Simulated assay, not measured.
Amino acid sequence: MPFAAITYDIRAGCEDEVAEVFTGFRRVGSPSVPDSSGREAARILSTAVFLRDATLIRVIEYEGDLDAVARHMAAQPGVQEVERRLKPYLNSPRDTDTVEGFVRTFRAGLLRCVSQIGVPRD
Rank of each mutant, 00 (worst) to 15 (best):
R85C: 06
S30L: 08
A19C: 01
L86Q: 03
V49P: 09
G29L: 15
V21Y: 05
P31D: 10
N91P: 03
F3G: 01
E15K: 02
A5D: 00
T47V: 15
L66S: 01
A48Y: 14
D122N: 12
A12F: 13
P77A: 10
I10T: 04
S37I: 02
A54K: 13
S32K: 13
V28L: 07
R84E: 10
R94E: 05
L45E: 09
C14E: 09
V18L: 02
V69E: 02
R39E: 06
S92W: 11
E40W: 04
T105E: 11
R26P: 06
G13K: 12
N91R: 11
I60M: 01
L86C: 04
A4N: 02
M73S: 12
Y8N: 03
A42D: 02
T47S: 09
A42Q: 06
P34Q: 03
S92D: 11
V59R: 01
V21T: 03
Q80V: 11
Y62H: 05
A54L: 05
T23S: 09
A48F: 15
E20P: 01
G64D: 00
E100K: 14
S32R: 09
A19H: 09
F102S: 07
D35K: 08
A68K: 04
V69T: 04
R85N: 10
M73F: 07
T98I: 06
G101Y: 12
S30G: 05
V114K: 08
P31V: 02
A5F: 15
L66D: 01
Y8K: 01
A19T: 01
L110N: 09
V114S: 10
R107P: 06
P2S: 02
E63D: 07
E81R: 14
Y89G: 07
G109E: 04
P120R: 08
Y89W: 13
T47N: 04
H72K: 00
E15I: 13
D67C: 02
I60P: 03
S36W: 12
G64K: 05
S32F: 12
F25A: 08
Y89H: 15
A75Y: 08
R58N: 09
V103K: 03
V119H: 14
A12C: 03
V59Y: 04
P93N: 06
P2Y: 04
R52M: 06
P77V: 09
A41D: 05
D16S: 14
D35L: 05
G13A: 04
I10M: 06
R107L: 11
I57P: 09
T55E: 13
R84Y: 03
P34Y: 00
E15S: 04
T23M: 03
I6F: 10
Q76I: 06
D122K: 12
S37A: 14
S37D: 15
R39C: 08
S36N: 10
D97R: 08
I6S: 06
T96P: 10
V33I: 12
C113V: 14
S36L: 14
I44Q: 00
E81K: 15
E63P: 00
P88E: 05
F25K: 04
T98D: 00
A68P: 08
D67A: 11
V119K: 12
P120I: 15
Y62K: 00
R104L: 09
P34S: 01
I117G: 11
A12N: 08
E15R: 01
I57T: 11
L90F: 14
T105P: 08
R112E: 11
P120L: 10
C113M: 10
A12S: 15
E17P: 01
E20F: 06
G38I: 06
V79I: 05
